[in-house]
Computed example of a mutant assay.
Amino acid sequence: MSEIVLQREQPDGRLMCTLCPRECQLRDGQRGMCFVRMRQGSEIVLDTYGRSTGFCIDPIEKKPLNHFLPGTPVLSFGTAGCNLACKFCQNHETSKSREVDAMSARATPEMIAAAAVRGGCRSVAFTYNDPVIFYEYALDTAAACRAAGVKSVAVTAGYISGGPREAFFGAMDAANIDLKGFTERFYRELTGAALAPLLETIRYAVRETACWVELTVLLIPGQNDSEAEVTALAEWVVEACGPDVPVHFTAFHPDYRMLDVPRTPVETLLRARTIAKGAGLRHVYVGNVHHEAAQSSYCAGCGTKVIGRDWYALSDWGLDDRGACVVCGTALPGVFVGPPGTWGRRRQPVRLA
């Protein structure tokens, strides 16, 4: 297990967890808001290290990552708990779990890397809940994967403090970061968190690391889908991160504590895509709906469709082995190594033991 100090003693004897901006202050035996980090004596520990809610091989496009090893399989896993309190959580059975025993799958980092190799996976994804909260487990697993020639992917809300941020994104080859909205009101009322630390994480990951980053925005009717908010969000991404960061606008469906909110219409997603492209973003997608044209990738130089997608299955392919358009030679930003994979839409549960 990695030797990482993520705590600070307070004058009243409590220990402050310094992993994320919540900075939970704990007495002996208390757990942080994330549930999986707790104080044991003079230390704050990850007491769920080496335990997972399960493993599955997915298409990389499901993360979603459209510019990272397209068509390849990724071994996905997560744990329990989360450091956000999203009222619209679509993985609440695990991310909101308060039962350690629910994590029945036990696996060392080396076991996970070996399972990825056996399954023909090019990468391992830390997903289903946020890998920030199982920081040590994620970093150790990423190191084991790197040693085995397997890449690491974080699917994260990006709610992490500046100190541990460097090691976290330094260990990842790719990340999809949820930009859940673009107002402090939205973050405060619907996620129980703050927007500003997330924006700093996104800016840092894109500008200061070698990690490939894509962003996901879950559009919720009446909450974060206004033309003004989508415009402001897209303009910020262009200014802070550049025009080549892929952005996925995905559809909300009623879940958890927002069962009375309707599903996002596809027209809302397409409108957001148009707004974002008008603001200067070059690669904008829609998700959680079937729309082949808006889920495909196009060359920024000549407009040719270079990657066709039907849900998670690839169709058209117009890139050379370096990831450049075969018509005009313009590079598609991302990580492209050789020909595309052929995994398609399959979802394959995996048992490590």
Rank of each mutant, 00 (worst) to 15 (best):
G41M: 07
G192M: 06
R207G: 09
V238G: 00
G120F: 10
R346A: 14
H92Y: 15
I44N: 04
Y187H: 10
K87Q: 06
D178Q: 07
L75H: 04
L139C: 10
A167Y: 05
P254T: 13
H253V: 14
L218I: 04
G341T: 14
L69R: 13
G71E: 10
P109D: 08
E235L: 12
S226A: 12
P70Y: 12
T72R: 15
G32Q: 03
R51S: 15
P11F: 02
P131Y: 08
A138N: 01
G303V: 07
G71T: 06
P64E: 06
E235S: 11
Q10G: 01
M111W: 01
S296E: 08
L332G: 01
I57R: 14
L69Q: 04
T94A: 14
T250F: 02
M172A: 11
R345T: 14
V45G: 00
N176F: 04
K87H: 00
G13S: 03
A102K: 14
R203C: 00
A196R: 12
G29R: 03
T72G: 07
G50Y: 09
I60L: 13
T264E: 11
A125D: 03
A196M: 10
C56D: 01
G222I: 11
P73V: 10
W317L: 04
A353N: 13
F68V: 08
N288K: 04
L269R: 03
P70L: 11
L26F: 05
N83P: 03
E61A: 13
R207Q: 15
G278D: 08
C241Q: 05
R14C: 13
V117G: 09
A276G: 06
G303A: 12
L218C: 11
M16C: 10
G181D: 06
Q295T: 12
M111F: 01
W311H: 09
D140G: 15
E189A: 11
P70H: 08
M258Y: 02
Y49P: 00
L179A: 03
T79Q: 15
D173Y: 13
S123C: 09
M258Q: 07
K62H: 12
I44K: 00
A114H: 06
L281Q: 12
I220R: 02
S42Y: 00
V155G: 01
A276I: 13
A232W: 04
A116C: 11
R31Y: 10
F77Y: 15
C299G: 07
N176P: 10
G78H: 04
G334C: 04
T108I: 03
S2F: 03
T274Q: 15
G192C: 07
G280A: 10
E200A: 15
V206Y: 11
E267V: 07
A293K: 10
C211N: 01
V289T: 06
N176Y: 04
G338S: 07
P64Q: 01
V74F: 08
F182G: 05
D130K: 08
R322A: 15
P164I: 01
P73M: 13
V350H: 10
K305T: 03
R322K: 11
I177C: 06
Y256A: 02
